[in-house]
Design a protein around this nucleic acid. Structure first.
Lengths: 382, 382
DNA sequence: GTGAAAGCGCTAACAC
DNA sequence: GTGTTAGCGCTTTCAC
């Protein structure tokens, strides 16, 4: 341990235990070569092509490097020369906490990280502040490609990414012609859940959805805002719901839809409260994410509503906690989504035609959906 | 949108819609300068020091850049020149899934990411495969510093990090002299929970803990393995428990401790099963993480044990789900941990004396701990 | 098996 | 306000 410590000081400050060495951090491949009386090529080879040296010479090089506190070839200089950064960038705009608090997003992140790990490349999280239009961070990122996860179609960071001369893969949204994309079959997924509710007999429904644009609008959503949503996944889900319920005779214009900017369980609860306060007749609450659904369940409990007797609640994503409590939801393979994006990107160097990967989803009926009670049952018990 | 598409193709492949341009990707700061008949400095200034140019000239430069498909200064070349990578590396060895499945780890990640975002620097996840001793990834990472999160003290990646001439901050473990560290006051935290259980009257206890070393050992843990653990946080927690219960007259040598390599709810359940099968007399299960505790609760339910009547279960970390279900646990400010590490690192350039930050923890008594039932009560009801 | 030469693309003094 | 000069530290043909 003490050895690690000593070396750390030596490398970081250029001295051992208070005894300063000539100059702080000067060792370089060239200086090492000079010290050894060999050429820079040889030193470089000692690190990158061990088979091009005699083992003995190599040992000497490494040994001297150690003595001089040379930490090996500088990664940045190497990247410049080889034109490979050894990292892929990840852009997830609009509030980092959004990403890390959502297990579905974390799943994507994990999948992507695994794919990167397999390929031995780093994953560079681009600092894209929320309001802050600090596009510079995108320009500053030394990466061989970008993965963009679920951003609005008018995101300036996205525009900056597309300007960079490297391949890009978009997960979920937005859809851009000519750019690789990985996403679930949203329309089918939502149709599934809608049909499930229709068959159970629900006609009085309400919807809780995530943000539809970059500006905050915590409250009811007009039809216009629904169809102008800049997050096309949310737009698509609403459209699919509208289609399915219209077919069942429900007038979509009368279906209350409540939006939340922040994606948290608490916001889900408050959204449910807002919706139910104004529409107590609702028998089913469709949420466009499990997180929101978890909040809706909490609110149902607070109101003393029995689920699913008094209120059916459904989610979207299939996160672990939802599964543990038996939430009816649409499961999507988030890990695979991230992995697929990673693989697509890492293999994208040569391809010219863009690739679209659509992942399957699965309706998982749990304990939170059931037929609505009749008014009679509601008053007099089942 | 179509505009984005066109530009993307132009930048990535060097042509517009199938019409190839001279050579694929040649535009560079120098070529731009040549085209414009100005010096490279001027072009550089157009991007980095807008105040050093006439607005008119700057407009012309940017306009020409756009026409030529010049995507702005190459980040890697810039990094080489400025000696700033604009990113910090994060090392979390030993299975990435471990990190992403554990909300406590995700919290740290989030905090760190927020700190980076504030500073406008990227967060570079170093691909450190589990068994794979691919230390090269550490050497290849173009970063200005490293944060190391909870790795064993004999981790080769850690050794490689300390060899790099950049500042380093370690979160949780290991402790290394001379290296900055951020962590909770583990000993106090564990003592708290131990005293809570002692006061409730528990003397027949069992412990579920996370991996203690790099090799897998799913099962009971000898005293020797406990005191040789390479993850000092786990070692410390066990030692603190031993101290507290010994004081209460419990012979620690007889306390069953079950270890799990993988950190998942399912493994927590199986560990609980293994422990309770062999020690049915146990009245309290102390888990060194909430994840394991969640599993223990599931197993208790499966066995028909009433919590806390038949079995008390405690966790560690204070993750959101634990809070929602009322788990008795020790809460630690994971987000702050990540943030503190980030700030420490980002401000570390000038400091020479190492800094240790200890974060407070808090015992949160929930619904899963209570006094043990007497044998009589167990058979005949409360 | 080893070395010399030629940059990768950029920024930062400092002079004009 | 603009240009000249020097590298940042490395890899990579291609001769020897």
């Amino acid at each position: 341990m003490s050895c690690l410590f000593t070396e750390y000081l030596l490398n970081r400050y250029g001295f051992r235990m208070g005894r300063p060495i000539r100059t702080r951090r000067q060792a370089t491949l060239a200086s090492l070569a000079a010290e050894l009386g060999v050429s820079r090529t040889t030193v470089s080879n000692a690190y990158n092509r061990p088979d091009q040296l005699s083992p003995e010479l190599r040992r000497r090089v490494l040994e001297t490097a150690r003595r001089l506190g040379y930490p090996g070839p500088d990664p940045v200089a190497r990247s410049l020369r080889t034109r490979k950064a050894g990292a892929v960038g990840l852009l997830l705009t609009e509030n980092l906490s959004y990403a890390f608090r959502d297990p579905a997003a974390v799943g994507v992140l994990e999948g992507l990280a695994l794919a990167c790990e397999d390929a031995g490349v780093g994953l560079h999280l681009v600092p894209a502040s929320p309001g802050h239009e600090d596009v510079a961070a995108v320009h500053r990122a030394g990466v061989d490609g970008f993965v963009v996860y679920s951003v609005p179609d008018d995101d300036p960071h996205l525009a900056a990414v597309l300007q960079r001369p490297v391949p890009t893969v978009i997960i979920d949204q937005p859809r851009i012609d000519g750019v690789d994309r990985v996403g679930p079959d949203d329309a089918a997924a939502v149709a599934n859940i809608a049909n499930h509710l229709v068959e159970l007999g629900h006609r009085q429904i309400g919807v809780l959805c995530m943000r539809l644009a970059r500006e905050r609008n915590d409250g009811f959503v007009t039809l216009e805002r629904q169809s102008n949503a800049h997050f096309h996944v949310q737009r698509l889900r609403l459209e699919a719901l509208a289609a399915a319920f219209s077919l069942a005779g429900v007038d979509w214009a009368n279906v209350p839809v409540v939006e939340r900017f922040d994606h948290t369980v608490d916001e889900g609860a408050s959204a449910a409260r807002q919706l139910l306060d104004a529409n107590p007749q609702v028998t089913a609450l469709i949420c466009t994410s499990d997180i929101l659904a978890l909040g809706a369940l909490a609110e149902a409990e607070r109101r003393g509503l029995h689920v699913p007797g008094d209120l059916t609640v459904t989610g979207f994503d299939g996160i672990a906690e939802a599964e543990r409590i038996g939430l009816t939801t649409v499961h999507q393979p988030v890990l695979e989504k991230g992995k697929a994006a990673g693989k697509l990107l890492l293999g994208a160097s040569e391809r010219v035609t863009p690739k679209i990967i659509t992942l399957p989803t699965e309706l998982r009926v749990g304990r939170t959906s059931g037929p609505p009670r009749t008014a009679e049952e509601r008053w007099f018990g089942p």
